[in-house]
């Protein structure tokens, strides 16, 4: 498979607390701690997990909006971390992002037209007239009217703003879009509109998506492959249907069973996890999930399970699935 994007060994540790003039920050938050992932052209890879698992940070590391501490990012075969800033800017044309917050991610002082045109201006694409035409096309494509270009973001509802954000991301005809919780701030009826729009755009343009979400049902609707993250690591990775049919990692199972569904026939057999997610400043030894895992053994505390292939395209990091020394 020739990957559109291939990231290996991504690491990001943030200093805990802001260092002052004289003191050093003694602790680090291990936000992302060795993540590998790849996306093929036209494919959607979902990153799921709960808050603090590092999924949003991973998305930003890939775009180098946050500088990784370690790891390589190959985009269309080129190593993003070795490209000089000028080349990186060029590559950015092909990788865009859609944000969670439809209110904060649009500059309130700009007109919608200027917002959508900004990527074109930054990369010096077209004349003013050409850009205006392109903006009109983009707005129409995402379900707004070309006349909306003259208005300001506050005149729009959340769903419409998210469409504006999508139009901006599409302006440069990217090949990969990181979607960071794109619908989690929207009402359900609007959420469906935006998800359908994103699917249509993907089909039309062969876009690759990295779809970051905490909502498993949404992920099931959108993704081809899914990576489940817990405390800065991927614990399970599988094709969509495999993951939902038979989750293997205990955390994936718990996460799936925690989602309430209306009118579901499935027995309400909940795996209710005890306790909270531990702090990423001082993650548990061995397997990070062991403090909440109903099946944890002594081995889990001692040894960190590696993400191991268990079947074609399926990886799990759990001693119970792949006993140490076995695989």
């Amino acid at each position: 498979m020739s990957a559109l994007l291939q990231a290996t060994g991504l690491v990001k540790h943030f200093p805990a607390g802001k260092p002052g003039l004289f003191e050093r920050a003694p602790q680090v938050v291990r936000a992302v701690d060795g993540v590998d992932l790849s996306v093929a052209p036209g494919e959607t890879l979902a990153l799921v997990g709960e808050s603090g698992c590092g999924k949003s940070t991973t998305g930003r590391l890939i775009l180098r909006l946050i500088e990784p501490d370690a790891g390589t990012i190959l985009f269309q075969g080129r190593d993003l971390r070795r490209e000089p800033p000028a080349r990186l800017r060029e590559l950015r044309r092909d990788m865009q992002i859609i944000f969670q917050d439809p209110f904060g991610s649009l500059d309130p002082r700009m007109t919608v037209g200027r917002i959508v045109a900004e990527p074109l201006v930054v990369h010096g694409v077209g004349t003013t007239a050409e850009r205006a035409r392109r903006v009109a096309q983009l707005l129409e494509r995402v379900g707004l009217a070309p006349a909306h270009a003259a208005r300001h973001p506050h005149e729009f509802s959340g769903g419409q703003r998210q469409r504006i954000g999508i139009a901006r991301a599409l302006a440069l005809d990217p090949k990969l879009i990181v979607c960071d919780e794109p619908v989690s701030a929207l009402d359900v009826s609007i959420q469906a509109q935006v998800l359908n729009l994103m699917l249509d755009l993907q089909r039309e343009r062969g876009l690759g998506y990295i779809f970051i979400s905490h909502n498993l049902a949404v992920v099931r609707y959108m993704a081809n492959r899914i990576a489940v993250m817990y405390l800065g690591k991927i614990v399970e990775e599988a094709a969509r249907d495999d993951l939902f049919a038979a989750p293997q990692h205990p955390y994936t199972k718990a996460l799936l069973s925690a989602v309430p569904e209306p009118g579901s026939a499935r027995a309400k057999q909940r795996i209710v996890l005890t306790g909270d997610v531990p702090s990423a400043i001082d993650p548990p030894s061995g397997c990070r999930f062991r403090t909440r895992c109903p099946h944890a053994t002594e081995t889990c505390a001692r040894l960190e399970p590696a993400l191991t292939p268990v079947a074609d395209g399926r990886n799990v990091a759990c001693h119970l699935v792949t006993p140490p020394g076995h695989a």
Partner: peptide, 17 residues
């Protein structure tokens, strides 16, 4: 810290812009 500043960085805008 506003998301729209991050959005501008994401489309490749430089510091001056």
């Amino acid at each position: 810290e506003m998301p729209y500043v991050e959005a501008a960085r994401a489309v490749g805008a430089g510091h001056m812009r």
